[in-house]
Every structure is written in C-alpha cells, then in structure tokens.
C-alpha cells in the first residue's frame, strides 16, 4: 500500500505527536565539554611545541599531527565511537574526528583486503570532507585573491 500525499501528511502529523524532541540543549552542552576538552589537549601540545622553540605555524601543524594520532589510537582501541556517541559534533568536528572517520573504515574493511578493502574504502566517510574542503579552499582562494587584486588570468585565457 502506497500512501497518497494526504495520507502521508496525516500520518506525519500523527507520528510527530509521539516523536521525542532532539535533546538539543543536552547535546550542545556535551558537545561543548567534549569538543572543548579535545581543544584543551591540543592547547597543551601547542604550548609544549612552542616552548621547545617551534614557530607558531609549525607548532600548529605538530599539534594537528598529535591530535590526529590520538584520535586514530582511540579509534583503534574502540573508544572514539563511544566518545562521539556522547560528544556528537564536539568529537566529530576536531581533527581527531577526521582521523576517526578514516581509521574506522580502514579497520572495518581490512577484511576485504588491502587494495579493495582498506585502500578503496578508507575515504568512504572522509571523502566528502576532502572533496568539498578542497572545493571550498579553491573558492575562498579565488575570492581572496580577487579582493586583493592579485587574481590574474593566465596568458592563454586573456582576451
């Protein structure tokens, strides 16, 4: 039985009466706590690298590497999914969440082999982040350079 538009609308209204609201406030607080904790750990690393004499840009890059490594490790021992269950976006958004999104399919599909399993499916979750991240970077770069008057077309494209 395929419901028509009216039946669908009526049923959606009935379902909405029983559907629990998403615990937004709860989720926001937990995301803040979990995401904030990850950032605090990052800050500890950053300060350490800075004290050891790394310039700010390199200290930032080393911090990212450290957080990725920790995210990958926690995924490997089966803890990161538990943290993200509680922390939601607070655990997904930091770069440790990105590590989780790559390590978890790599672990899952290892059983299908190194090429068609790990290799082919490792970016199954993170792929969209890479694709649209690059696209966004390209657009931002064009806008930035355009705004600073540094955008010039290559010779063969100029009228």
């Amino acid at each position: 039985m395929m419901a028509n538009a009216e039946e669908r609308r009526r049923y959606a209204a009935l379902r909405a009466r029983h559907k629990p609201p998403l615990p937004h406030l709860n989720n926001l607080i937990l995301a803040f706590v979990v995401g904030g904790s990850i950032c605090a750990v990052g800050q500890v690393f950053y300060n350490y690298f800075s004290r050891r004499g790394l310039p700010p840009e390199q200290a930032g890059a080393f911090t990212a590497v450290a957080i990725v490594a920790i995210g990958a490790l926690l995924t490997g021992v089966g803890l990161y999914d538990e943290i993200a269950r509680v922390g939601g976006m607070g655990a997904s958004l930091p770069i440790s969440g990105f590590a989780n999104s790559i390590v978890s399919p790599a672990m899952e599909y290892k059983r299908e082999g190194w090429v068609l399993g790990v290799g082919a499916r490792m970016f199954g979750v993170a792929g969209p982040v890479v694709v649209y991240g690059l696209l966004a970077a390209l657009l931002v770069a064009i806008v930035y350079l355009g705004a600073h008057g540094q955008l010039s077309l290559p010779g063969w494209l100029r009228p």
Binding site: P20, L22, Y80, D81, I83, R85, A91, S104, G124
Partner: peptide, 17 residues
Amino acid sequence: ERQFRFPTEFGTQLPPT
C-alpha cells in the same frame, strides 16, 4: 551497522528514535 550505516568504530550521534 557496516552494511546499513557506518563502520562500527565510526563515531556518530544518533537521534532518540
């Protein structure tokens, strides 16, 4: 999980339903 949703170790938050 891996067939219908995500890899088992992937962290995600689900709605109450």
